[in-house]
Design a protein around this nucleic acid. Structure first.
Lengths: 247, 247
DNA sequence: TTTTCATTGCGTCACTGTGACACAAGCTAC
DNA sequence: GTAGCTTGTGTCACAGTGACGCAATGAAAA
C-alpha cells in the first residue's frame, strides 16, 4: 500500500465480478473495506511487469483461493469521474496515514472489468488487509456498492448473458457431476427467466458437450434424474469455436 | 511529446483499427512513423482528465477529420512484452532527443483496443507530427506492422465479425444512398466469404432497418437496382437492442 | 433492330432449430 | 395401492435459412 506507487502501474486498476452459484441463486463475491460503509467488487492493481490478465487471476486467487477458473475481460471503464478519492482519503485518515493529496491511490484510475465464474463450494472467501469482510451476496439482496461498482457489475452480468449465447457455461459454476435440472437452473438464474425443461434438454444435448453417466442420481425423491459431466475436450472446443443460436 | 508525462495518463495507450470500405475492399488506415520502417495503427494517449472513449474519438478525429463515427472498444492488450521501447528509442535518437531511459514513452504500455467504422469518401487521412505517412491499406496487401499491432488488428476484425451477428452495420461504411448489392458486398468483405444474393436480400429486408427509395439507380448497365437508405431510427434501435440470428 | 447476357427482384422447396405441449415412467409419501 | 411430483421422450406447428428457379430489365453485341 505504501509502496504501491512504485510496485504498480499507475492509474490502472482491475475490478472483478466473481460469480458463483448456490442454492438456486447467482451470487457475487463482495468486499467490505475498513472504515467505508459501502461494499466493493474485489479488485487490485497491475505490477509493473505483470500481464493484466495475470493480475486479474492473482486478485481472484487471493480472494477465493482458486487458481483454475474462468476469467474474462469484458470492458474498460475510463470515465474520469468514476474515481472517488474521498473514499481512500477517509480510509487513510482513520488508519493514521498522513493526509497527502499526492498519494498514488488518490489519483484517477482507469479500471479493466473482468468477470469470473467459480464453483461456489470450492471458494474460501478471504478478506485482504484493507478489508474487514469478504462474502457472497445474492443478486437480489445486493448492498450499496462504492463508486461505479454497481454499474460495472451490471455490465458484467450483461456480458455474461451475451457470452451464454455463444459459449457453453457451467464447468466453472457446477460440481463435476450434475443433473440436467441443475444445469437448467443455472441457465435460468443467469438469464433471469424460466426456460422450458424439455426444450432446454434437447438444445443442451444437441451441443454434444455432455457425457451421460450410467447411474442415475441416488437417494432423491421422485424420479431420479440422469447424471452428467462435461466432456472437457468438446467443452473447450465449443468455448473456443463458439456455439450457434441464442436464447 | 516532451510534456507527455505530465499531460497523459502514464502507461496507458489507445490503438484504433479504423475500417473503411472502398472499391469492394475493406481498408484499414495505417500510420508510418518517422525513422521507423514498419507501419502502425493510429493511436494515442489519454489526457489526465479525459474519458478513454473520448480519447479514442479524439485520435480518430485527428487522423480522419471525422467526428461522427462508429467507435467500439473491444479489448485490452496488457502483455508486458508487447511494448517495444527500442522503436521509440531509435526514433528519439534520430530526432536528436537526449538518450534518456526514463522518458515516459519508453515505459511499458497497456493499450485499449478500439475499432471504428468510417465512410471512406469522407475521410481525409492526416499524418501527425511524428509520422511521415497516413494512408489506407487493403486487408490483403498489409505491410508489416510494428509491435503487436497485427495481432490487435486481427482481434479487431474478429470483434467486428462478431458484432455483425447481432447488430446492423453499414451506416458508417456506406454512402447515405446505396443499393442492395453494395450492402451485400460490404458484408461479404467483412466476413470474407460469399453470400447468396437472394437470401441476403430477404434477411436484410427482414431487419426492417432499410427504406427503399422510389427511384432506381440511374445510368447503370444491366437491370437498375433499387436504392436504399437506412431508417436511422430503427437502425439505432437495432444497434441498441441487437438483432437475432447469425451468419 | 434483334439477340445476347449479366444483373436484379421475387418466389419455391426442403431442412433445421425452436416454442408449446402431451404422455409415460419412476420414486416418495400417505 | 393411490396421489403427487419429477424426469425422459416424443409430437406438432412455425419461423429462419440455404439452395435454387424464373421472369423482368436494360446495356452491349450481332
Amino acid at each position: 500500500m505504501k509502496d504501491g506507487g512504485k510496485l504498480f502501474l499507475p492509474s490502472l486498476s482491475i475490478d472483478c465480478a466473481i460469480f458463483g452459484f448456490h442454492s438456486g441463486q447467482l451470487k457475487v463475491l463482495l468486499l467490505k473495506m475498513k472504515h467505508v460503509k459501502k461494499w466493493s467488487l474485489p479488485g487490485g492493481f497491475v505490477f509493473r511487469e505483470e500481464d493484466t490478465d495475470d493480475a486479474a487471476a492473482r486478485v481472484l486467487q487471493e480472494r477465493t483461493g482458486i487458481d483454475k477458473l474462468f476469467l474474462q475481460q469484458f470492458r474498460v471503464f475510463g470515465n474520469p469521474g468514476r474515481s472517488d478519492a474521498s473514499v481512500h482519503r477517509q480510509s487513510m485518515k482513520k488508519d493514521g496515514f498522513p493526509a497527502n493529496d499526492k498519494h498514488w491511490i488518490l489519483q484517477r484510475f482507469v479500471t479493466i472489468g473482468y468477470y469470473a465464474l467459480v464453483e461456489f463450494s470450492h471458494v474460501n472467501p478471504l478478506p485482504d488487509d484493507l478489508s474487514e469482510a469478504c462474502q457472497w451476496w445474492g443478486l437480489a439482496e445486493m448492498p450499496d456498492l462504492m463508486m461505479d461498482h454497481r454499474h460495472i457489475l451490471d455490465a458484467a452480468l450483461d456480458a455474461l448473458r451475451l457470452h451464454l449465447n455463444y459459449h457453453p457455461v457451467g464447468y466453472n459454476l457446477l460440481p463435476d457431476i450434475f443433473t440436467m435440472p441443475q444445469l437448467q437452473k443455472l441457465y435460468e438464474t443467469i438469464l433471469g427467466k424460466k426456460l422450458d425443461r424439455r426444450n432446454f434438454q434437447r438444445k443442451m444435448l444437441g451441443y454434444q458437450i455432455l457425457k451421460r453417466l450410467k447411474e442415475p442420481k441416488p437417494g432423491v425423491a421422485h424420479k431420479s434424474p440422469y447424471q452428467y459431466s462435461f466432456d472437457l475436450q468438446k467443452y473447450h472446443k465449443a468455448l473456443k469455436e463458439g456455439l450457434k443460436g441464442g436464447w
